[in-house]
Amino acid sequence: MKFYSYVLFLTLLSFHAYGQESYDVVTKGDEAPGFTVKTINDKTICLDDLEGKYVLVNFFATWCKPCMEEMPLMEKYIQQHLAGDDLVVIAIGREHNINELELFNEQKKFSFHIAADPKRSIYSLYAEKYIPRNYLIGPTGKLIYTHIGFNKEEFKRLVKLIETEIDK
């Protein structure tokens, strides 16, 4: 019986250690998958047109508590202080439609781009599961940062990375 318990423990440990990575479609160093979105402000954004800029792509949902903790910080520390000619911020609402996101942003008043992905067509190019997710795309179109979930220390690392990259 001890042997079977040990085997079960090792199996579960391996799922825990490697399972999350199996939900990534792309990782740091990969070419960012191209997409075109329409924002809640009726602007069409094509990732290919942003070549030469840094692009922060955030996948979120309005019902996701960690997403709602992260987004105000994105507004304050990234959009308000770092976004501009060199950096574009796009938050993509996974499984949301434009109308839902318009109502959401009427309350939140975020100034970064917000777009809908009702069928996960863009999200599925990047991942299979879990939000929030952040992808920082460099000027050459390669992913230079990826992260799943939200915590303040990791968010600070993202801000520092963006500051460092933009100052190059």
Rank of each mutant, 00 (worst) to 15 (best):
L136C: 02
L56E: 10
R133P: 05
F112P: 09
I122V: 12
I144M: 13
D85N: 14
A32V: 02
L56M: 06
N99P: 02
I122E: 00
P33Q: 08
M68P: 03
H96Q: 08
K53R: 10
N41S: 15
L125D: 09
L56W: 04
F104R: 03
E95K: 14
T140V: 12
C64S: 12
A127L: 05
P33C: 03
K38P: 03
F104Q: 08
Y130F: 11
D86A: 15
S121H: 11
I98L: 14
V159M: 05
K76G: 00
N99H: 12
Y135K: 08
M71I: 01
I162N: 04
H81P: 07
N105I: 11
P72N: 00
E154Y: 11
I98N: 12
E75Q: 14
E153A: 09
L87Q: 06
L158W: 00
E69T: 12
A127R: 05
L136P: 00
G141D: 01
A116I: 10
D42E: 14
M71P: 04
V89S: 02
K108A: 01
A83F: 02
E70H: 04
D48R: 13
V37G: 03
D117N: 07
R133D: 00
V159N: 01
V89M: 02
C64M: 10
L82K: 02
Q79S: 12
V88N: 05
D85K: 14
L50Q: 12
T62C: 12
K38W: 14
V37A: 02
I131Q: 00
G141N: 04
N41K: 15
I98S: 15
E153V: 03
Y77A: 12
F104A: 07
K108M: 07
P139I: 11
L56Q: 04
E154F: 07
L103M: 15
E163H: 03
N97A: 09
K53F: 04
D42H: 11
Y123F: 15
Q80S: 14
G52N: 07
G84W: 00
I92L: 10
A115W: 00
Y145D: 07
F150R: 00
G138C: 04
K119I: 13
F150K: 00
E102F: 06
R133C: 09
L87D: 08
E51L: 15
D117K: 00
T39L: 07
L73C: 09
D48H: 12
D86E: 15
K43I: 13
E102R: 14
Y126W: 10
K160H: 14
E128V: 14
S124T: 13
K142M: 03
T44N: 14
L143C: 07
N134T: 04
K109T: 09
R94H: 07
